[in-house]
């Protein structure tokens, strides 16, 4: 491609772009959309069934399982190995005391389905 051809093409491009700019008519309006996803009360823990299957697990294992299951809803749970069961969280408060029937080993029964997650 020689110099003349290049210059001709450039002229044509400039002309076309200019024509497009002149002929385009536009007007804009804007809106702000606000959104959020909030996990609040009464979540069902999907992994609870797995805990029930084992029926008897140690506090330490129980804690780990519940930690894993609650990760999906941004809640961290810590269950102590002492007689007094405690729970804590970063974003939410989790009451898991009803899940533990035995202080040494966690026996999960039907009552354990009562898992509440509250803000």
């Amino acid at each position: 491609m020689n110099k003349t051809t290049t210059i001709t093409i450039l002229f044509i491009l400039v002309f076309l772009i200019s024509a497009q700019a002149v002929s385009q008519v536009k007007s804009s309006a804007m809106q702000t959309v606000t959104f959020a996803v909030i996990h609040t009360a009464n979540h069902t823990l999907n992994t609870l069934a797995k805990v029930q299957e084992s029926n008897s697990i140690s506090n330490q294992e129980n804690t780990r399982i519940f930690q894993n299951s609650l990760e999906n809803i941004r809640v961290k749970v810590t269950v102590s190995e002492t007689a007094e069961t405690k729970s804590s969280s970063i974003d939410n408060h989790v009451d898991v005391r009803t899940l533990l029937q035995d202080k040494e080993s966690a026996v999960i029964n039907e009552k354990s389905t009562l898992v509440t997650v509250t803000e």
Partner: peptide
């Protein structure tokens, strides 16, 4: 319409600006 997957993590409040343009 705002839609989210069932397994979505919590999302704190955010905003987006939507621009509507009438043009040819």
């Amino acid at each position: 319409t705002f839609a989210a997957n069932q397994d979505i993590d919590e999302i704190t409040q955010q905003s987006r600006t939507v621009t509507l343009t009438l043009t040819n």
